[in-house]
Simulated assay, not measured.
Amino acid sequence: MSPILKTAALTLTLLALPATAHAADEPPHTVVVEDGAIQVRDYAAMILAEVEVSGDMGDAGNAGFRPLAGYIFGGNQARAGGSDEIAMTAPVIQTQSENIAMTTPVTQSMAGNGSWRVAFVMPPEWTMETLPVPEDPNVTLTERPARRMAAIRFSGGPNDARFADKTAELRAWLSAQGYEVIGEPVYARYDPPWIPTFFRRNEVMLEVAR
């Protein structure tokens, strides 16, 4: 077990919490444009711990959270032996994934229900060479390059209809401003489930061309 203990936080929310709550570290970024609830941000390269799960937005988010939390809180093998705790960052991100046939396994059987890729952003001090290896084979580590992301902020719990509405609102704003969308919608949540719904910070994010 690493002797370094860090404050835990979820991968996409804690700015909207009451003053008594702990704020989470967010991935390094610069705000390029701000217009009400919408921001355009430049994010540095990052590493994600990801797991793919099926179900509706809320169920998939909960199902994906458990193995990822297990990984960062010790369900791993450190590179030099033992296990490490990893500080969580905000937000927890969730994107709907495509079902692509592979040599093994074949995932087309899930196409009717859809699937979600749930991810935690790893703190920037970790690298692919130093991050501990997940004990759960469903948890994978993935590098993401630096990206420009547009985000629209809203409160509440996971809700498919609200996600769709906010995605449409963000797309309309981006189109009016002349941005080119080059990525699929990402649902980001910044708060743990015990935070009252009306205090929770959520975002829909879309990657745009620089």
Rank of each mutant, 00 (worst) to 15 (best):
W116M: 07
G61A: 15
D25I: 01
M128V: 01
Y179S: 05
P67H: 07
Y43E: 11
T107H: 14
G82Q: 09
V53Q: 15
E50P: 00
N113T: 00
G183F: 14
D42C: 11
E184I: 04
P193Y: 09
F154M: 09
D165F: 00
R201V: 06
A49P: 01
R117L: 14
I152V: 14
R41N: 05
P192C: 02
S109V: 01
V118T: 07
E143S: 10
Q177W: 05
T20Q: 04
I93N: 12
A111E: 11
D42S: 13
A60Q: 00
V121M: 04
S54G: 15
Q177A: 15
A16Q: 08
E85K: 11
D136A: 10
H29Q: 13
A63C: 13
R210I: 10
P145S: 12
A63L: 14
Y71L: 07
N76G: 11
A161S: 08
P134D: 05
S109Q: 04
A45I: 02
Q94M: 08
N138W: 02
P105K: 01
A80C: 10
V40F: 15
L141T: 09
R162Y: 00
R153N: 14
E85H: 06
A161D: 13
D160A: 14
P185D: 11
T140A: 13
L5I: 10
G114T: 01
G74D: 00
P105D: 08
D160V: 12
P185L: 15
G36L: 12
S115P: 01
G75V: 14
N159C: 08
S97D: 03
A24G: 15
Y187D: 03
V106I: 07
R117W: 11
E184F: 14
G64I: 08
T104I: 09
A90E: 10
A101W: 12
V133N: 08
Q77H: 07
D56S: 10
P3K: 03
S175F: 02
E207G: 09
A45T: 01
R144K: 13
R66F: 06
P18T: 05
I47T: 09
P124D: 06
Y187L: 10
V92R: 08
Q108L: 05
L15I: 01
P158C: 15
F154W: 04
L206A: 12
A19C: 02
V31S: 14
G156F: 06
A150I: 02
A150P: 03
A172S: 11
F199K: 03
A101G: 14
Q108C: 05
F199R: 01
L5W: 04
Q77D: 07
A9H: 06
A111L: 14
V186G: 05
L141W: 10
T89A: 02
G74L: 09
F73G: 12
T167G: 11
